[in-house]
Nucleic acid binder design. Structure first.
Lengths: 101, 101
DNA sequence: CCTTCACGCAACCGGTTGGTTGCGCATCAC
DNA sequence: GTGATGCGCAACCAACCGGTTGCGTGAAGG
């Protein structure tokens, strides 16, 4: 039903940082991102690949460079899932307290 | 506002399944859960420990058994974070399109 | 044309992780 | 008291993961 892959993509702090930069700083390439980070370009590229696989990022090749853009779509799914689970739990609690009247 | 640990806790499908059962089926022990799962009690116990560390589950020892209850709290943080990132992205887009007028 | 720059691919490495088995201990039921 | 039951702890294992180095390639730019 729900994307544990998205959660896995968000599980790593470095990857979360990359996503954050794309969301708040706008589209960027792997080399640009790695320039202000303590890891290699290849490492960043791997993270971007993971984010892309999770649909959290859009890949836009242009000439010899590849620019990545944040995609909020999967985050909507996450929110929906979280609210669903929370709601069924609330309903459970209400049903239980009712049976004690 | 630093929920990568929560994401890590939700990243594993088996662990997500355990959480789902607790949320929809109500509190349970490790042995109860493992009874209807293809893994050992100890494996389930490890997952429950991870969920507990992330605050997604509450540990209630009672006699010789330990019952675990779902806790929706951290999911609220996740939702808040997701909406925050999504919103700043929206604002970014609006600001950009404005600069083209 | 030749150099430079941004990428992708592959190999490799240490640490983490999901899972198992085996054990010892405490609690409950008789 | 004795036996069964539920847990926790520890050791171990294969697989995965985040990161590195090294190399090959193809698109700019003079």
């Amino acid at each position: 039903m729900i994307p544990h892959e998205v959660f896995a993509a968000l599980a790593d702090p470095t990857r979360l940082e990359v996503l954050n930069r794309l969301a708040k700083g706008g589209p960027a390439t792997a080399t640009e991102l790695s320039a202000t980070m303590p890891i290699t370009r290849q490492a960043v590229a791997k993270h971007l690949a993971a984010l892309d696989a999770a649909g959290l990022v859009e890949r836009q090749p242009a000439g010899r460079e590849v620019r990545y853009t944040f995609d909020p779509g999967p985050l909507g799914d996450v929110v929906q899932w979280a609210e669903d689970v929370g709601d069924t739990w609330d309903r459970r609690l209400r049903r239980l307290s009712k049976s004690f009247e």
